[in-house]
Design a protein around this nucleic acid. Structure first.
Length: 396
DNA sequence: TCTGGGGTCCTAGGACCC
DNA sequence: TCTGGGGTCCTAGGACCC
């Protein structure tokens, strides 16, 4: 059964779906095929989350304000995101990946690492496997995949980015330096706007420049981050592909169409956010100890306030109470005019799995679990009127 | 151009304990 | 009376990724 063995010096794959959200929308509505599809917030404050390659020709990019994308591409089809559809497609793709390798580490809905070292008898070489993976994903889901093939995670991720769209790029172990050296520093994982500025000041423009720089100089300028960059720039990355990672925090946030100034509307928003977060915790069978509140003012200044409880919770009312206290304390410490709130967020960290005993209760009494969201509790206590949230405030 | 929503990781100071 | 040292936890802020 052994296939002839080719070059296995680059056994790590990074698989990345092309223009994922826009592609899913095109599958949902085939009349969009070939048109500039732009998925993103359609409110005044929305940004682009995904753009088809047709839209990119007009200069539309992810994270760009939707208003600007409309100016660049007036004929674009603008669609608000439908996350349920993306999650469902992502699961289908994950099934294809899992049939392919025992070591699959998802990074996001549209990308994953695959370690092929334990599949070396099934394929002549990793590049052949990458071809087959693209083909299987396309046939199973209709989605187009780009794949980077490299000796480690960092190089594989870089390769898949450069392979797009609809490509495969293999970085051979003996060609790493030539591959990396000419790339701009911004291609290094973890180099964004701020780090680029620091590197620029050091006179470092390409990855080759960074590789040639003394690690101590980088560490001095950027701390531990600098030491890590020194290694990446030389193509060194010893991180393993780790399947089955569990989340470390669960959160929900919302940017409001217009800034909130009334505390009562802020509390109403907090209640909704707390309910969303708690529902997701229970859905995953986890609970957490640290509740955080995120506040972004109209000035775009952003604050975080958190509190760690003596015990874990997955209850919306418990999360809400803490968030409410943190918010009230924050407002008290500000000048009366200084609280135009652009965004509120609630998150829960310090997570752990539910004890098995609780999960048994959950299994036995699903109706109990279903009634357990905070909004339901509020309705039960205050009636439907409570959804105006006035009653909650009286209750304080 | 006026900046989403979901996350991860790192740093630094202070409290607290031994 | 004139000041230890190490470890851990908590909080706040910030950079970065998709």
């Amino acid at each position: 059964m052994n296939k002839p063995s080719g070059d296995w010096s680059s056994p790590i794959l990074h698989a990345d779906l092309d223009a994922f959200y826009a592609s899913v929308e095109t599958l949902r509505d085939p009349s969009l095929r070939g048109r500039p599809v732009i998925v993103g917030g359609t409110s005044g404050r929305g940004v682009v989350t995904s753009a088809s390659y047709e839209a990119r020709r007009y200069g539309v990019r992810s994270a760009m304000p939707t208003a600007r994308a409309r100016r660049l591409c007036p004929n674009g089809v603008f669609i608000p995101p439908t996350f349920g559809a993306y999650i469902a497609r992502s699961r289908e793709v994950k099934e294809v990946f899992d049939a392919f390798s025992v070591a699959v580490e998802p990074l996001a809905l549209d990308e994953a690492f695959l370690d092929l070292r334990r599949a070396s008898r099934l394929w002549r070489d990793p590049a052949t496997a990458a071809e087959a993976l693209k083909d299987r994903v396309l046939r199973a889901t209709g989605l187009v995949l780009s794949v980077g093939v490299a000796p480690n995670k960092f190089l594989a991720k870089l390769a898949s980015r450069l392979a797009k769209p609809d490509g495969i790029l293999v970085v051979r172990a003996d060609a790493v330096q030539e591959f990396l050296a000419p790339l701009p520093v911004g291609q290094l994982w973890g180099v964004g706007e701020q780090t680029s500025i620091v590197l620029q000041r050091l006179g470092l423009k390409t990855v080759g420049d960074v590789a040639a720089c003394r690690p101590a100089v980088l560490e001095n300028a950027l701390g531990a981050h600098g030491a890590a960059l020194a290694l990446l720039a030389r193509g060194c990355d010893s991180r393993e592909v780790v399947p089955g990672q569990v989340a470390k925090s669960v959160g929900a946030e919302e940017t409001f169409e217009t800034d909130l100034v009334e505390p009562v509307s802020m509390l109403g928003a907090l209640l909704k956010l707390s309910d969303r977060v708690a529902s997701r915790l229970r859905g995953q069978g986890i609970s957490g100890q640290t509740i955080s509140l995120k506040i972004r003012l109209s000035t775009f200044e952003t604050f975080n306030r958190s509190r760690t409880l003596g015990q874990e919770t997955d209850s919306a009312t418990a999360v809400y109470r803490v968030a409410q206290e943190l918010l009230e304390r924050f407002i008290d410490g500000r000048p009366p005019s200084g609280c135009r709130v652009r965004l509120l967020g609630v998150s829960v960290a310090n997570l752990s799995q539910w004890p098995a005993s609780n999960q048994m209760v959950f299994d036995r009494e699903p109706e109990w679990a279903a009634a357990e969201t905070a909004l339901d509790r509020v309705r039960m206590r205050f009636g439907e009127d409570a959804l105006g949230f006035g009653a909650l405030l009286e209750d304080g």
